[in-house]
Nucleic acid binder design. Structure first.
Lengths: 313, 313
DNA sequence: CAAAGTCCTGAATCATATG
DNA sequence: ACATATGATTCAGGACTTT
């Protein structure tokens, strides 16, 4: 809209930050090891992915640098190693079974999230906002921790999935939603960014496909109607296997970023996975800093940026 | 559907339970004081409202009697009075400001809810389910407590309000949802009641508002699209002032009761307010036990039952 | 080439019975 | 406590295949 682009980084600007950038090494330069320095300045990490533990990485970052933080933590699904088959074709449902989603106890999970949120709070600018995703497995634990830490919740935003996996044993409602908590550091923060006209647009996008919407009805509600991450967008390996079991759709990040940041803002993601947050941020003229531990996810993220950013001359 | 009506209580049956029932005193007999006895048997309280403190009342009830429990607790909106008026009900400055929603701290709120849930768990039959409502102010605290207590969450159900109060200051998304947690006592419970065909029906109503009605029913997703409690349904005093600031719509209780109970089941509500739970349960051929402290709410509830139940001969 | 049909799969705490 | 077999059929979106 009418926000000025203050510090947009594309490859030419990016090269200034990373002076040794060249055509052959661009993929390397996107990534910086968390252990590379004692502490990182903003220019060390701007529009880069820090490879390593997120707590360690965050502790090395300056305070009050991020305009918005997006956190997609492990959900701690506790699937109990049960296997679920589709009767029709005897195929097995490929659920989340990653090591990073396993915790020994609620206490351990809570402790991890509290440590994350403590550093996140420090890294946030005074007027910054934070988004965090979850389902009923984890979102309540997170919300409770945030309230206890003084975070002030602005909204619960409901992601209503267009194409959820149906509950075909019919023992529950089909779980078609995820919840995003949107919050500021405390109740005194008033000047955070909220682009209300875009919130309206996203809220009514699906309604308007089906019927005319009266003007008075055009409010930006806290429900987003979006499909899962599938098709071309889903990152897969040579064998066609999905690289990350819970890759978020770009559309979700677009909504998060467009409603809660301005052009040129700095978006921080401490658990980046395949880098959807920074990738979308960059496409939308925002800057980013991301942290991710697993190499295979980082490599997938790199492949996205290589396509996005033209090579340096 | 095809469930037999096992122990439906209308006024004639009710008179058997309360042998001194007669035309003049029916309204009194609906209510029983929590202090009336040391302990209550099922027949003492079946289809009656216990007047008094809910913890005290629950402690006097037998174990494992309820097939389903519905809890509409205080939401604890009071942290910073300035913000409240934006978020609750139709009135602008005159939102929820009731004594029952005031707690001194998160700890006090948590403690209250934990005590409630401890008794609720005891009162639930082994295969019973429990519903509890909230917004982002309180639902996360409740969810966390429930998980810690071993409750096993089946679903988050999102009540998407047809007519939420618009956020006219445009500083947040319009908060158009409330969340209901639906749970069993622990993860081993498998034979709880879930009427999947009705879940589908309710889910379809959402769809109907946004697109042409499909030929076949959709899956039963965890989103319900319902208006707030307004109009005729809203209980008001002589001056037209609403009696309860957060009266739940009957449609919400219909969905809760129809999807998770069978005809003849016993529904328990420890914080009954104006008695919507028992009123709807009774209309749907379920039995109820309710507890409520405030006399003005109980009188409003009585007025509903007087209309519902014909006088005894 | 368009249209229609097939196949696969998704953050899922999805059941029961028999060894 | 595991592991395995059985049972009996959900849906939207997208990629792919066939007509």
């Amino acid at each position: 809209m009418d926000e000025p682009s203050t510090c947009k980084i594309k490859i030419t600007e990016y090269a200034k930050v990373c002076p040794n950038a060249n055509e052959q090494s661009i993929e390397k330069k996107l990534v910086i090891d968390v252990g590379a320095k004692e502490n990182f300045g903003l220019n060390d990490v701007l529009n880069r992915i820090m490879q390593g533990d997120c707590i360690e990485g965050m502790k090395k970052l300056p305070s009050e640098i991020a305009d918005m933080v997006f956190i997609d933590p492990p959900y701690f699904l506790q699937l109990q190693n049960k296997r679920l088959f589709r009767w029709k074709d005897h195929t097995e449902v490929n659920g989340v079974n990653d090591a990073w989603d396993k915790f020994k106890s609620f206490e351990q999970y809570d402790s991890f999230l509290k440590n994350v949120l403590t550093e996140v709070k420090r890294i946030m600018k005074p007027e910054a906002t934070v988004w965090i995703t979850g389902t009923y497995h984890n979102i309540h634990r997170i919300g409770k921790i945030m309230l206890d830490m003084g975070f002030w919740i602005l909204n619960d935003v409901i992601w209503f999935k267009k194409n959820p996996m149906p509950n075909w044993l019919r023992v529950r409602f089909t779980n078609a939603t995820e919840t995003l908590i949107w919050a500021v550091k405390n109740g005194n923060v008033k000047w955070y960014t909220f682009n209300e006209h875009l919130a309206r647009k996203f809220s009514l996008e699906f309604t308007e496909n089906f019927r005319p919407v009266p003007e008075e009805e055009k409010i930006g509600t806290n429900i987003w109607y979006l499909p899962l991450c599938t098709g071309e967008e889903r990152l897969r390996d040579e064998k066609g296997k999905k690289i990350h079991s819970t890759q978020k759709p770009e559309g979700l990040l677009e909504r998060v970023i467009l409603t809660s940041t301005k052009s040129g803002d700095l978006v921080f993601d401490p658990m980046a996975g395949t880098g959807t947050t920074g990738y979308v941020a960059s496409k939308l003229d925002r800057n980013f800093i991301m942290i991710e531990k697993e190499k295979k996810y980082i490599e997938a993220a790199e492949s996205r940026f290589v396509k996005l950013w033209p090579r340096a001359e």
